[in-house]
Every structure is written in C-alpha cells, then in structure tokens.
Design a protein around this nucleic acid. Structure first.
Lengths: 106, 106
DNA sequence: TGCCTATTTGGCAAAACTGCCAAATAGTGT
DNA sequence: ACACTATTTGGCAGTTTTGCCAAATAGGCA
C-alpha cells in the first residue's frame, strides 16, 4: 500500500467511520426528513445533549451534514443526498445477509 | 428511539463499522478484482498475517465477504455486489466534499 | 508419522471511541 | 449589565478496536 493509495482508503474509512454508530445513523435518517436543531434531536434520541452535539460534530467533520445558526439555535441538514445512497446500500447488504440466512434455514 | 427502530440502526451501524478501517476498505477493493487468499492480501497490505486475518474475520462476520478453503489456503470473495455500491457511494461523498472545498477556495 | 505452509485464536498493551458531567461560549430579551 | 436558553468544549472513566507476538489448528507431502 503506497501512500497515495493509502490516503484514498483512509478517506473512505473516515466517511464510513462517521456512519458507524446507531445514533448517527438515526440522525441521518431524521435529517433526511427535515432539518433539526440539536435540542430536537436530543429529545428524539434521549441522550445527554453534549453527547448528541458530539455525534453531530463527527458527522460534520466527515462532511456529511452542515450546520446553520439561526437565533440561538443550530440547525443541521444533510449536506449531500449521496449519503442517502450509502444508507440504502447498507440496507441492501442487510437484506442480502438476511436472504442468505433464510436459505440456509429453509 | 424505541427498540424496534433502534435495532435497525444498530444493524446498519454494524455494517458501516465493518467498513470503517482503511485496511478493510483496501481489502474490499482488492476482492472486487479477484478472490484472494490471506497470504496474498498480507503481501499487498504489509501487516502481520494475524492482523489481516482478523480484519477478514470482521468483514466476514458482517456478511460482507465469504471464505472458501481449498487445499490449505483460504480464499476470500465479496459475498454481495451491493457492497460495491456502498463503496462508490462513499467515493461520491468524498467527491462532493472536495467540490465544496474547491468552490470555497476559488 | 513428522515436517512444512497457511491460517486462526488468545493475550496483551496502546490507541480510539463513547457518554456523562461540569464549565465555557454565544445569542436573546429585560 | 443580568438572566436565560441553546450549544459546544474539556475532562474523565469505561469500553472497544487495533496490531503485534506466540501458540494452536488444519491440510499437504515425504
């Protein structure tokens, strides 16, 4: 693995790592429907607000969501609909795993 | 987040987590071209063979790759082409992030 | 059987991630 | 300026991940 190639996989892993948490997956799903401020998401998730804020910052650092401050609230939105493709691709993998398991059992 | 919904995001995060490492991304890219045994991948990656074996087991547990033993080697293959969709979706996000950065700079 | 190669597993230390609390920051309204 | 709300940041303990070494397992071949 030379450096140039390595940088590519590093970058890809960074995106994937940002998605690799149930709460962050949930956030993406919610932001797909609507923009949401931190406190709205916090209510939906039921964790400490600082925890939610940190999850949001992980997603933001990966370039997956973006923040806009209005009055004293920060509203988050999906930055690029391509994330949703990843979302449904992941569901496809799960579906495919399920089908395989089903075949083995039946 | 009720339990049923939570299970869904848990499952999605599990897939994403399995991809969330540069070496594993690299492995997927290689397996897309060809099946490979552990020692071939080890040569390409340049890490300890036990490290590579463990990465492979992570991917296998997530249902992303499958193993076939022939003689005393184990050959790994992508289990489902849908993983490649994730792969290119991730590249799209990176591309999109890059375009945004470019616009800001220019 | 014994030796060799390929792979997996156990164990351990270092690094990264998570989630809470408390404190800091920023904006609103009085 | 002060109080109040929304959010971020720092810090810390607990958990998970990572990567190496050494040992165990499995198959091929003499």
């Amino acid at each position: 693995m030379n450096n140039r190639i390595d940088a590519k996989y590093q970058e890809m892993a960074k995106i994937s790592k940002a998605l690799a948490h149930p709460t962050r997956m949930f956030i993406i799903d919610k932001l797909n429907e609507n923009e949401h401020c931190v406190c709205e998401l916090t209510d939906l998730i039921g964790a400490d607000i600082s925890t939610v804020s940190k999850h949001l910052s992980v997603l933001k650092n990966a370039g997956i969501i973006s923040a806009e401050k209005r009055s004293n609230m920060v509203y988050y939105t999906l930055r690029c609909s391509c994330v949703l493709n990843i979302f449904s691709c992941v569901m496809n993998v799960i579906q495919s795993n399920f089908e395989s398991a089903k075949q083995i059992i039946e």
